[in-house]
Design a protein around this nucleic acid. Sequence first.
RNA 1: GCCGCUGUAGCUCAGCUGGUAGAGCACUCGCCUGUUAAGCGAGCGGUCGUCGGUUCGAACCCGACCGGCGGCGCCA
Length: 429
Amino acid sequence: MQSVSSVLSDQLIGKEVEIRGWVYRIRSTAKMCFVILRDSTNIVQCVGKIEDLGSERFKALSSLTIESSLSIKGIIRKDTRATTGYELTIKDFAIFCRNENFPVSKDISEEFELDNRHLWIRSREFTSILKIRSTIFKGFADFFYENGYYQVQPPMMVSTATEGGSTLFKVPFFGEEAFLTQSSQFYLETFIYSLEKVFTISPSFRAEKSRTWRHLTEYWHAEGEVAWIGNDEMMKIEEDMIHYILKKVIDQNYEDLQIIGRNVEDLRESLKPFNRMTYAELIEKSESLGMPLKYGDDLGADEERTIMSNFKTPLFITHFPAELKTFYHRPDPSNPAVILCHDLLAPEGYGEIIGGGERIWDLQELRQRIKDNGLREEDYYWYLDLRRYGSIPHSGFGLGLDRLAMWIMHLDNIKKAIPYPRTIRRLRP
RNA sequence: GCCGCUGUAGCUCAGCUGGUAGAGCACUCGCCUGUUAAGCGAGCGGUCGUCGGUUCGAACCCGACCGGCGGCGCCA
């Protein structure tokens, strides 16, 4: 048994091959039928002739329907009339499942596509999306493995919020109330005292009633935490990591990028060094970037989109005012009104994909910030312990892998970047 | 949480300021000597999201509810 892509080869011309898969398209005339067979690797046109198969077998083959499953034995040939350049003349075949009616057809709405994701996944476009996603996830892990990091597994069920309680999912927990994690950052910080350089890829959950093109209720959060480094070094690592992932995708999924219509040259622009700008510089330039802002304004979706339409490569924005960021970020010792943090905004209007920076590592400073934010120290006892015992400078980041995937594939909605999106209005399939 | 849009056949949609529903695709059956999500002919297929109201009469008007999509805030 061979894969479809492996039989599309000059070496096999005139040879008998056997492939199996699903009917991608089927067309028939009185004496011949064309079955375009799909497997995970590619599609190939197979031609069945009544003179080779006999009328009974020919009828069984030519009456197959879309997404029926079968195996085919035949001779491979070069043929420019076939979509992928080669054609298989069918000598024999075996049907596994003949479908009555496959629900997904050429005219489907986005709603129908979402209701039938379990079937839509088979489409050529979504197969490519899944392949690219796979490369992105592997690329993220490989980059960190190759640079001496350890992968760790934080808990998904937690007892406290990371940044505020309103957006947590509640889960019954043996008479107690547990929550689904919305970020693994605090747990990641615990691991650096053992392993120093760690990363994780795990889901995060946000019960925000968001309805936007770039929010999910359950999303894949790639997080890293690194001992002994500051904000600038953290950004350099992230830039190298994004470059690494982009190179892998362009190298390994070039065909898939073509299938989904991604302009690869535009994507290559982001292999160049990323731009960096402080928040204050951004405010100063905001007028000329088409989005007048005043100091203290947060960046919303419109602002990010407008700003990033000016850039072809990602942009780091650093040194946000302290009041715009959560309590654990470290204020700049030379100017405590701003913090040593960064957001990474993706180009082509995509906006924020990473948030990161230095963490406060002084115990008293952290306690003060917890108090200032109206939070309770006892909820963070173990997080404070990290500052009590052998505290060190460190930095980290969180990357939305689905957002990264959406940008890399130039999709217009994050729901197209994940196989089974979870949103306020969608829990199935 | 706020704002907007939407629900008619398996799918995509049409249906005129109210008169008991139609097309294309899919599927089934024919026909066709090379098709490119082919072509031709026939057939199958709908409590018009649900409930209530107005009316002689409702897919259409009114109300409530349910489902979905888009946008904002929040963030990754």
